[in-house]
Write a protein that binds this DNA or RNA. Structure first.
Length: 703
DNA sequence: TCAGTATGGCTTTTT
DNA sequence: GCCATACTGA
């Protein structure tokens, strides 16, 4: 078969073993994605109907990537029929079709973590619990764990909160991410005939990143594959980095037990990286105790040593990254897109951004502060949600509580009270507000405002089958959303809303091309959370640019040159993982993932001092750096003479030891160089602005 | 009812 | 240092 000629022997076996359960243990860079892609093609060429194939991925990014790569290799009609998507996306759609069987109304909406946290906070408040002891984030994690292992609800101390949360979600027609998987399980368990239907339908099941599946996902797959026993999973235990989300490494370890006649294929040849990179990665991962024995090897050239750079401050670290990229690009004729900068936490992207802007280097930040977390967008989404589902009180409150809508705290409190007293939904009360006139005791104008508001919502609620774009545009006009933003004079806000509406238009156009695809507002909301890779839609991503992202997001990607920044104790490994051996091992796997993204060159950086919550804190170099055998490392000399600074002078305050020639940062003027110091008054030269006299307390030292 | 001010928590990681 | 919330006085 000619199209398979690009595969090596083991890859070929992985692609063509299509008659029994198959697990591929695929080391980093061993051609895992290629195997998945060609297996799909092979299935179709072997006569399997594309609509009988289910391909599940872990992130939206890889789902979209897979679709993209397939689009040039197979016929578009075939592609559109394959079920490719994340677990959440695929099963949310399946659930929507069968929502009556799990007791949910069809119009339920999906809440993300931010939304869920708000509910938890509300519950803690209602139960009169101390929010310092009952931390919403922690509780949410616990609830998530329970839902994903729902056969044992045993953590008693949170069951009350859990019960309340469950009830709230149900009453408001809300599902969170975990519910999607949970209710899929419930649906299959309670309705054998439905399960049978889908077992029949999904004859071939492929799963990417199997090591990251949790119990809930494992159960779903197990149930679905029971009939045809034809399941194909790809994974790498060394790259398991989602145990905080309940990922269970045993799913990989038990595969042979779980599936009769299973074949296990190992891909150990790395095609991506140089020998140095493969060796360093092997050395690092070998320090973990819990792992499947395997060794990655490569025939690639030896390559170069890993570079290590010690910076003075986080700002200087970012400058180093930007400068190095700038120089390397010129010297070696590289493209900006050849560089990837990886970090442990999203917050670290900020100072990078500054340095890139200064150096005029184009960059893309992936998955940072999501577009739809911006205020205007959240407002708009709240309208959409309420119109789709008038029981969504969280959204209702967000909208109605908006300043200048003429309904204040007092009135709202009365309305909440009425809702509780009469056991009615808030929207019910608002709709019939005139019946409660005597209790609300407000002038008729406010009551009329409320009725008008309800009527508008209901007006749109009746038109939910219409085109999402037309409807959303009308909604934003009808409620004067753009005018509201204009009043606040936030230009950015208007742009955001317009961009957002444009994206709905694109969504509708795309869906119209595929028959039977939903174009309703509800379908858009679902896609917004589960399918759309917002990075591309909203961040104005350009192709020729440096990629900035968390290591978690980088999984599956590769770059010729990789920077891994912030290699400091308490950051990487994270302070929250430091106390447990198991979690340290997960952090180490994360480091392994980061290292194996690189094809040719790796730069590791850490900083002696780091800004944290506005203060400079001295740091300690990460243990992971120390674990690397010195023979692999090349230290990069730091041009700056750091001897004149000592760490203690910077602790706590950041202006004590200003000296002439220092590079400093001012909130109003940006970066500048100190020219003269006269007591408290500092003269600073700023690029494009010139000299300014500034109070020393207003300045931060960069280096 | 609302603008202005004080406080406290926050930085894991993703669907 | 920034954001969301809670509190305060007009």
């Amino acid at each position: 078969m000619k199209y398979l000629s690009i595969l090596n022997k083991t890859q070929y076996k992985a692609v063509t073993t299509i008659d029994r359960p198959t697990m591929v243990i695929a080391g980093a860079g061993s051609g895992k994605t290629r195997v998945l892609i060609y297996r799909l093609i092979h299935l179709i060429k072997s006569g399997v109907k594309s609509r009988n194939i289910l391909a599940l991925t872990f992130t939206k990014k890889s789902a979209n990537e897979m679709k993209y790569r397939l689009s040039s290799l197979i016929d578009k009609n075939e592609l559109d029929q394959i079920y490719i998507g994340t677990f959440h996306s695929i099963f949310a759609k399946l659930l929507r079709k069968n929502s009556d069987l799990i007791g949910y109304k069809k119009n339920y909406i999906i809440y993300d973590r931010y939304d869920s946290e708000k509910i938890i906070k509300k519950i803690i408040k209602n139960l009169n619990l101390d929010k310092k002891i009952y931390r919403s984030k922690y509780l949410l994690d616990k609830i998530s764990m329970i839902k994903n292992h729902y056969f044992n609800e045993r953590n008693l101390y949170i069951t009350n909160i859990y019960a309340n949360y469950k009830k709230y979600c149900y009453q408001n027609g809300i599902m969170d991410f975990d519910d999607i998987l949970l209710y899929t399980n419930i649906l299959f368990n309670k309705n054998p005939e439905i399960l049978k239907k889908y077992q029949e339908y999904f004859k071939y099941i492929l799963i990417d990143e199997y090591q990251d599946t949790n119990y809930s996902q494992y159960r779903i797959i197990k149930l679905l594959s029971l009939k045809h026993n034809n399941i194909f999973v790809v994974g790498d235990d060394s790259q398991s980095i989602y145990s905080f989300r309940g990922a269970n490494i045993n799913n990989i370890l038990n595969f042979k037990k779980d599936y009769k006649n299973a074949v296990i294929i190992r891909l150990e040849q790395n095609y991506r990286s140089t020998k140095y990179i493969v060796d360093v990665s092997n050395q690092i991962i070998s320090l973990n105790k819990r792992k499947i024995d395997k060794k990655l090897w490569t025939n690639n050239k030896i390559g170069k040593k890993i570079k290590l750079y010690k910076a003075f401050s986080s700002f200087e670290e970012s400058d180093f990254v930007a400068n190095t990229i700038d120089q390397l690009k010129k010297k070696k004729k590289l493209k900006y897109s050849d560089f990837g900068v990886l970090y442990r936490t999203n917050a670290q992207s900020r100072s990078l951004e500054e340095s890139f802007i200064k150096k005029k280097i184009p960059y893309n930040i992936y998955g940072s502060i999501s577009f739809y977390k911006r205020k205007e967008i959240k407002d708009l989404i709240a309208y959409f949600r309420l119109i789709v589902n008038i029981n969504d009180e969280e959204s209702l409150i967000r909208i109605i509580n908006y300043p200048k809508r003429g309904i204040g705290e007092v009135t709202l409190k009365k309305i909440f009270f009425l809702s509780k007293q009469n056991d009615k939904r808030i929207f019910e009360i608002l709709k019939n507000i005139n019946n409660y006139k005597s209790i609300i005791n407000r002038d008729q104008k406010i009551l009329d405002n409320i009725s008008n508001f309800c009527n508008k919502i209901l007006f749109f609620n009746k038109r939910l089958d219409e085109d999402a774009f037309i409807l959303s545009k009308e909604i934003s006009e009808s409620f004067g959303l753009l005018e509201e933003i204009k009043k606040d004079k936030i230009k950015q806000g208007i742009d955001n809303v317009e961009e957002f509406l444009n994206s709905i238009s694109t969504f509708v156009e795309d869906k119209k091309k595929i028959k039977n695809e939903e174009i309703s507002l509800n379908a858009y909301l679902e896609s917004l959370y589960l399918d759309l890779d917002l990075d591309y839609k909203f961040n104005n991503l350009t192709k020729e640019s440096v990629s900035l992202m968390t290591i978690h997001l980088s999984k599956g990607l590769e770059f010729p040159i990789i920077f891994i920044i912030g290699l400091e104790e308490k950051i990487f490994p994270s302070i929250l993982s430091i106390s447990s051996q198991l979690e340290i091992e997960e952090e180490r796997r994360l480091f392994y993932v980061a290292l194996t993204r690189a094809k040719e060159d790796i730069f590791l950086t850490f900083s002696k001092n780091r800004y944290k919550w506005g203060k400079i804190v001295p740091t300690i170099c990460s243990r992971f750096v120390k674990e690397i055998d010195k023979k692999y490392i090349k230290y990069i000399k730091n041009d700056l003479n750091h001897k004149k600074f000592d760490d203690t002078s910077l602790l706590g305050s950041y202006t004590n030891n200003l000296k002439e020639g220092m590079i400093v940062y001012s909130n109003s003027f940006g970066r500048g160089k100190i020219i003269k110091i006269e007591g408290q008054i500092i003269t600073v030269y700023f690029n494009n602005i010139g000299e300014k006299k500034i109070l020393n307390t207003k300045l931060k030292i960069i280096y």
